[in-house]
Design a protein around this nucleic acid. Structure first.
Length: 472
RNA sequence: GGAGCCAUAGCCAAGUGGUAAGGCACAGGUCUGCAACACCUUCAUCGUCGGUUCAAAUCCGACUGGCUCCUCCA
């Protein structure tokens, strides 16, 4: 089965064919580390983590590179603009490098909780200043960039005819300069900074041929992707809000500096809304992941995120998370039942084989996790109805060999705790005794209390069993 | 002003030409001391209007509504 991906270049689905045989190079824009990661990061990195996992499942040898932006980005684009990291450093009264490292750690911590695999290479912008200066020099030498009297270096957009192709816009109809105060030494408003001169107040700065300064906001990705993946590579990902200007500028820089095609497939995930509204600091509905994890189990957030397609917006509200939590638990519990019925010698079950193929076909069609997960419910229904151990074994194998590694949802996470289990069984015995004496007040209280800590009792003719559910 | 995305049942959500997947909620039922779980049953012609076609949720056009980008943001 061939893999189809939606390519932002051309705005259509295409068959995925890597440049170099079985090897895939993938670069995804990482976070700017000046604050705690938020829901938007979760959607983006869960999406690309799933893409990464699926490519590996398909047998590709993937090199996944993700940057950490620990310098640079200005609050505005004027010369008076302040670095976001330095601004946060002033607020927290610490060194800007401490800010960057603190939030980098928080980012990775949150990603781990969401079962997001680490990229193969995580690279910091500050570790690549030499290469950045080098690429800027190349661009200046080739005439694509110019140095101003203020010792700033700008990319000359008029020199790159394809500028605007990715985001499908022309220079004339952008509003560049209409909403903000522009640096006054640019030739044209749409030119963007490669290197900015730093004044004495600036803490994060490096020597360069143009004096002390710091890199502009797009050049690091061009430089690091080149260093680790080469001049041309397969997949470049990021949030769709990065299409313009960030990725447009990367294309301009890399294509001009390397004189060859930059990327074959651009993949962009859609954004997160909260109660239907864009999430933003100024709107007051900004949700950080550390805060969210106090309320919801991270794995349920991952599950909920994968319940809709990565190119569709995801809306967060409590009821939807509650629903997702319920569905997640029903899959986990069904799987526990199936797992207790596996047999060593089994044969391929046609029905399960077909569902497995449907699942993989959905993933092949532009990573359609929403469709893929819907097939898991069919399996849940089968598990709950059948006693066919061969069938159940087929299902468990399917989860172990494909579902868990592709979706990263820890459906198989049955952490055995025999001490806890024997304690629960003892409590159940006590409750059964109360029930046999018709002391239902007591037996119901025991049931409620256990339920509150995520242990759900199930009474049946055969006796009482229990399930553990993932709590918020 | 320019660019783009979206619009499927109470809610979420698949489906890009062949006659509407799945989940949640609701209702009825089986099971249960009562519940919960599980199972069974019921539940939509796809924003509006027009066009193309033997056939459209699916293609084209117009309109309406929502969202995003054009400053940094995943």
């Amino acid at each position: 089965m061939s893999l189809i991906v939606y390519n932002t270049i051309g705005h259509k689905k295409e068959e995925f064919i890597p440049l170099h045989g079985n090897n895939v190079g993938m670069y995804v824009c990482g976070p700017t580390v000046y604050g705690f990661p938020h829901l938007g990061h979760a959607k983006s990195y869960i999406s690309f983590d799933t893409i990464y996992r699926y490519l590996k499942y398909k047998g590709y040898n993937v090199k996944y590179v993700q940057n950490i932006t620990d310098v640079g980005h200005l609050v505005g684009d004027s010369d008076e603009g302040e670095s976001k990291i330095e601004k946060q450093a002033k607020i927290e009264q610490v060194d800007p490098y401490q800010i960057a490292y603190k939030y980098e750690l928080s980012y990775f911590d949150c990603m781990e909780k969401l079962n997001v695999l680490k990229p193969d290479i995580s690279c910091r912008a500050t570790g690549h200043i030499i290469e950045i200066i080098d690429m800027i020099k190349t661009l200046v030498d080739k005439g694509y960039a110019y140095v101003t009297e203020n010792n700033n270096v700008y990319f000359d957009v008029s020199k790159f005819k394809e500028y605007g192709k990715l985001s499908n816009r022309t220079i004339d109809n952008t509003m560049s300069g209409k909403r903000i105060t522009l640096a006054d030494d640019k030739k044209r408003p749409e030119d963007f900074a490669l290197w900015k001169n730093a004044d004495n107040n600036h803490l994060m700065k490096w020597p360069s041929p143009w004096g002390d300064g710091y890199p502009g906001w797009h050049i690091e990705c061009s430089v690091m992707s080149k260093k680790y993946l080469g001049d041309t590579f397969d997949i470049h990902g990021g949030g769709m809000d990065n299409i313009f200007p960030h990725h447009e500028c990367e294309i301009a820089q890399s294509t001009c500096a390397n004189e060859c095609k930059f990327v074959n497939y651009f993949i962009h995930n859609n954004l997160v809304t909260v109660n239907g509204q864009k999430m933003g600091k100024s709107l007051g509905n900004f949700i950080t992941l550390p805060d969210l994890f106090k309320k919801y189990n991270p794995i349920v957030i991952r599950f909920y995120t994968l319940l809709s397609h990565y190119r569709k917006p995801t809306d967060f509200d409590d009821n939807k998370l509650i629903e997702a939590n319920k569905n997640y638990n029903s899959i986990v519990n069904a799987l526990i039942k199936a797992r207790s019925n596996i047999v060593k010698n089994y044969t391929i079950d046609e029905e399960i084989f077909k569902i497995k193929n449907n699942f993989l076909e959905a993933m092949d069609d532009d990573f359609n996790t929403a469709l893929a997960i819907s097939y898991l419910y069919e399996l849940v229904k089968i598990i709950n109805k059948t006693d066919d151990k061969n069938k159940l074994t087929n299902i468990v194998k399917f989860f172990d060999e494909e579902v868990n590694q592709i979706l990263g949802l820890s459906f198989n996470n049955t952490t055995d705790n025999s001490k806890e289990d024997s304690l629960i069984k003892f409590i159940i015995e006590l409750r059964d005794q109360a029930r046999s004496e018709k002391r239902y007040d007591l037996s119901d209280k025991i049931r409620d209390e256990l339920n509150n800590i995520g242990i759900v009792l199930k009474d049946s003719k055969e006796g009482t069993t229990y399930e553990k559910k993932v709590l918020f």
